[in-house]
Amino acid sequence: MKPKISRRSALGKMAAGAAAASVAASLTKRMTAAETAAGAALKGRINHSVCKWCYPKVSLEDLCTAGKEMGLQSVELLTVDDFPTLRKHGLICAMVSGVPGGITDGLNRPENQERIVSYFEEVAPRVANAGFKNIICFSGNRKGMSDEEGLENCANALKRIVPICEKHRVVAAMELLNSKVDHKDYMCDHTKWGVELVKRVGSEYFKLLYDIYHMQIMEGDVIRTIRENREYIAHYHTGGVPGRHEIDDTQELNYATVMKAIVETGFKGHVAQEFVPARSDVLASLKQGVQICDV
């Protein structure tokens, strides 16, 4: 025969059970949140950045806020005028932009060189004072010029720029771009040409920006190229091939494997997402890209 349970006793036991269940649920919720946060935390072997131009409908303020939450250290291809916004969010600009002439009218033409040298004289100390490191530059288009003449002209110009960079301890980084799809006639379109230029200049304050998307189009053989030329590379950009969209399995490169190879070279610079999202939730695409590259 079961003992009789009073109403008061029954209610007391129910209340105690409910309290215990509430504590357990709260504990479970806290543990789940902690595990989620731990899972979302980045590994720290890749320093993550993003190129602002890929997000024209997202304000710099909003991109900084979202990027910070994702674990980005940098928003880049910005000018010195954007530094205060970055500073407010505790971010850096891992690759500073704004060089006169842009991609097409670069250092391979003597008539462009004076204004580009002047730009470095003006901007390099401001970049250094902000605590940033890299300033982008470009070879320019061929326009009928031979690659050898272009090498000589670029080297002569960079030998004027490098002392400025050395003084302020910043790096001039020339970007490798494809001339097959996106930047017809661009001269610095193969790693071999860029590496030869770095060797001729002969300073640790001039290196290459190796764009994985562009060099996959021009050369392929990305991992071996990175391993063999690691000492000449200051920075990396990503992008899905073909199309320059998300870097997931909708394109041909295995970015996780490429990132592991970059880490194995001892690289300590930044890797910037430079794909143009094809999906409507562009920040979700950015977060996915960061997670893919966080090896």
Rank of each mutant, 00 (worst) to 15 (best):
G194S: 12
L197A: 08
E148K: 13
K88T: 06
L151W: 02
L208G: 01
Y255L: 11
G140P: 04
P100M: 08
V23I: 15
G98L: 03
P125D: 11
F138L: 09
G12P: 02
R30V: 14
N156V: 14
V75R: 02
P84Q: 03
A278H: 12
K2S: 10
G194R: 00
S26C: 12
N108H: 08
H237A: 10
K167F: 12
V162T: 14
H235W: 05
H48R: 04
V127T: 05
S74Y: 00
A24M: 14
R30W: 14
P277C: 10
Y119R: 09
L107D: 12
D182W: 07
E61N: 11
R115V: 13
P110D: 10
V276F: 15
G269I: 03
P277T: 04
V127N: 06
S285H: 02
F267V: 01
C93P: 05
V198D: 03
D294G: 05
C93V: 04
A41V: 02
K88R: 13
E204S: 13
D189F: 09
T225V: 10
N108E: 05
E264V: 03
V96L: 10
L286C: 08
E252S: 12
E231H: 13
R109P: 06
V295W: 11
Y236R: 03
Q288I: 05
D294A: 11
L11N: 14
V263G: 01
L197D: 12
L209V: 13
V290S: 02
G239P: 06
L27I: 12
G243V: 04
H214T: 01
H235S: 08
C51H: 08
E175K: 02
A20T: 08
V195E: 09
L286K: 02
V282H: 01
K199R: 15
V117G: 01
L42Y: 04
F120C: 10
R87Y: 12
A33M: 14
I5R: 13
Y186H: 13
L86K: 07
I135F: 07
P110E: 09
V96E: 02
P56V: 01
D249S: 13
G44Y: 08
A25Q: 11
S26R: 14
G194H: 06
G289Q: 03
V99M: 11
G90K: 05
G266S: 07
A18D: 01
